[in-house]
């Protein structure tokens, strides 16, 4: 999993997130979503990726969906499950997808992509593909007090 420097991340949140941060948590975890644009630059055959605030987004662009969590309490948090629906205008990309479970049926069943199948009306059952993914989730057994982390998935604008 990629990580970002804290300063850069904070700047991104200010740029792209609504001013209202995580809803008041009945528990003790703060959750923050953001979207970044994967700005791909190729110079002399060297491709570099820069994750920037999405000033302009068009079909074919690659996006990074980021969820940050932080245990704001002084007690450990157990069985932390983050569910992140994949917006319909984008398709999941396989890079980094080994780090989370996916669902191709809106969250009814979960697994690694290779274990899932898709049956569309009038079509034979087939193996699920990246673009079939409707939801992703991460399961974190325990978050220590004050601990934080970043969860993310890549997707391309359809």
């Amino acid at each position: 999993m990629r990580t970002f420097s804290r300063n850069v991340m904070t700047a991104m949140v200010i740029l792209v997130a609504s001013p209202v941060l995580a809803l008041a948590a009945p528990g003790a975890v703060a959750l923050d979503s953001s979207i970044k644009l994967d700005k791909i630059t190729t110079v002399n055959g060297q491709t570099t990726h820069e994750f920037v605030a999405p000033q302009k987004v068009v079909p074919g662009n690659h996006l990074l969906f980021v969820t940050q969590y932080r245990n704001t309490s002084d007690k450990p948090v157990d069985h932390f499950v983050v569910t992140n629906p994949v917006p319909s205008p984008v398709a999941l990309e396989s890079v980094g997808a080994d780090n989370f479970e996916v669902s191709v049926d809106g969250g009814k069943s979960w697994g690694k992509l290779a274990q899932l199948t898709v049956t569309k009306p009038g079509a034979a059952m087939r193996a699920a593909q990246d673009a079939d993914v409707t939801t992703v989730r991460w399961v974190i057994p325990v978050i220590a007090p004050g601990a934080s982390g970043t969860l993310q998935y890549h997707a391309v604008v359809r």
């Binding site: 609504s18 009945p26 969820t67």
Partner: peptide, 24 residues
């Protein structure tokens, strides 16, 4: 519009909580 909202459930002691992130 492409929107991103994360949901999370967790337990702490005996209580179980559900939270939602901001929407981008």
């Amino acid at each position: 519009l492409i929107q991103n909202t994360a949901n999370a459930t967790f337990s702490s002691g005996t209580s179980t909580s559900t939270i939602q992130s901001n929407t981008v």
